[in-house]
Amino acid sequence: MTKVSRNTWTRILQDRYLYLLGLPGMLYFVVFKYAPMWGIVISFQDYSPYTGLWKSEWVGFEHFVRFFSNPDFFMLFRNTMAINLLNLLFFFPAPILLALLLNELRTGLFKKSVQSIIYLPHFLSWVIIAGISFQMLSQTEGVVNKLIVSLGYPSVEFLTNENTFWVLLTLQSMWKEAGWGTIIFLAAMASVDPQLYEASKIDGAGPFRLAWHVTLPGIRNVITILLILRLGDIMDVGFEQVYLMMNGAVSSVAEVFDTYVFRVGISQGQFSYSTAIGLFKSVVGLILVILANKSAKRLGEEGVY
């Protein structure tokens, strides 16, 4: 034991300048990431900004009990999970497929321009995308509906239909982020050994065989890592997107944890309650990440740690 620690110290002493260089970064994490974590204690308090962290009354699990016994808890849970599972099922593979298609393109200019165009929506804020969606799909003003009506069909309620709201959200996410998501997969594909392609080609593999047996296995570890990270966010739904697209007609399928926290917690000044919900989300996310990581390792993948 002492030997190990002495070794460690010698090594630290040896690389002291490197550690010194790393110090600002470490300080950053301590000051801005680890220290604020103590803030979660307010989820066990009846926190008031005026009395502060030290003097606020302790209430134990009261906020958690209130949250779980809320009749809307199930609805919030269902909506959050449904939106995320749809995302996982359709939105997550979308960039991989796109990247596979782009990977087949060898000519520079066409590939570059396609890439630029599909990256573009990523830089638009959700406010703009919600605005565009409205301009396109609204029944009173929307271009799409005007077209449908002019063709003699009744107008379609895209924005106020409970049954299609989740689909609408998923399609929006795909439109916005699928292109940007290809970057990491394209980078991974670039590192696949070209010899493998050549060997397969000699064995008579066509483009589909190549994609299935060479490219995809080649980027498998990247896919796994991204999937694990994605699972960690399963309780988060992009607040802005849902908040902007929500309206009275669809709110029973649109209300998720994040919008609930904003409406009931933050705007009512109930910081403790908000923090309790946030903590619950984080714990679920952490458990999922750990489980996914374990199963990935069991399947022979690398995992995130």
Binding site: T140, S155, L159, N247, V250
Partner: peptide, 8 residues
């Protein structure tokens, strides 16, 4: 308006 809840 037929979509009044979504109409800003």
């Amino acid at each position: 308006p037929q979509d009044f809840p979504a109409l800003k």
